[in-house]
Design a protein around this nucleic acid. Structure first.
Lengths: 196, 196
DNA sequence: GTCTATACGATGATAGAC
DNA sequence: GTCTATCATCGTATAGAC
């Protein structure tokens, strides 16, 4: 692993543990094992690190969404796939996802706008799928914003599940089922308007 | 409102917006309308403000839980009451709840331990109710930690619902139903083991 | 209680030798 | 690329006049 990679990795861990504002470049240098000033041979600034971490995650979500949108399947199956996407991204890089979730507000003005635009775009795609499910009677008639926010928030604690737990797979399946049960229409013998 | 009260109120708003570490006493002084040094005639330190905000919320949750535990009602009804408690606390003081949710990790060593103990106690009470529901067949057989975390996380986004929205009540009811649907056993004609 | 003045440590970042 | 040395700035908090 290159020094640059190691800096980004340790930064994600540090930012996720202490928060971006409380994490100093001196802390980071210690973890990397060099002097603080040496960091700047590899990175431009502290803000730049935050920016890259946040946008890498944002791209992962938006690309995942695009992939899922293309598949021809039921809305409820697409929501399952989106939940799996969240769990997969969180499992692959738990530190980065915490930074993405909690520290994006420290992005600079211009980056922040771009970030929020990307988030908005993701949320709109997510809600479109929910709406399609409401229209064909497979998803309950709650506000799509309500369902979006509840599902996404309900997934945010999962990063602190150790992925080496032997029951990690069961946990992920159960969490998915719990959330799906919350929005799924209990199909009453094919009647499409059986949702409360 | 006393100056001290106004300092705490503005601090909660400031900390919730910028995060505890990024919020400076100079920022706070500007919002209150006095010089930074004057703050210290009313408060002991920045840490002290954080401490009071966090523990006030923590007490509200633990007292609410105790109240609910005493009532003689079905586990599922108690979970409904707990959800209502979260929504009520968030509605009463949205800024403080954000600080409670996101900034507790900046508490000092000794306060942090006490805070985590209180949280643990709340979580154990919450899980006991879930377990009772699993045992009498009204709540699905998921891990109680899984259900606890998903419900509590799923409620955390609600603070940015403006309480003056005319559909705020419907949103709260729908959110409650969504979460309850997730954990409720679909009762199959009285069979107690009808949970998947 | 509020002010002015200030102590003093920590911060992000740069300059320049090697 | 890494170091030592350093800068300018901002942080929390205190002292003491009014």
């Amino acid at each position: 692993m290159s020094r640059k990679q190691s800096i980004y990795q340790e930064a994600a861990r540090l930012f996720s543990e202490k928060g971006y504002a409380s994490a100093s470049m001196r802390d980071l240098a210690i973890r990397v094992g060099i002097e603080p000033s040496s960091l700047y041979s590899h990175i431009k600034s502290k803000d730049q690190i935050l920016k890259e971490i946040c946008f890498e995650c944002a791209h992962a979500f938006n690309e995942g969404l695009e992939r899922i949108e293309k598949v021809d399947s039921e809305p409820l199956q697409k929501i399952r796939a989106l939940i799996a996407l969240h769990l997969q991204i969180a499992e692959e890089d738990p530190s980065s996802i915490v930074v993405f979730n909690d520290e994006w507000k420290h992005l600079g003005e211009e980056s922040l706008q771009e970030f929020l635009t990307m988030r908005k775009s993701y949320e709109e795609g997510f809600k479109s799928i929910l709406r399609a499910g409401k229209e064909n009677g497979t998803i309950r008639n709650y506000s799509s914003g309500l369902m979006l926010n509840t599902i996404v928030s309900g997934l945010k604690w999962m990063h602190d599940i150790k992925s080496n737990r032997d029951d990690a797979m069961k946990l992920k399946n159960d969490l998915t089922d719990l959330l799906i049960h919350g929005i799924k229409c209990s199909s009453n013998k094919g009647k499409t308007n059986s949702c409360s």
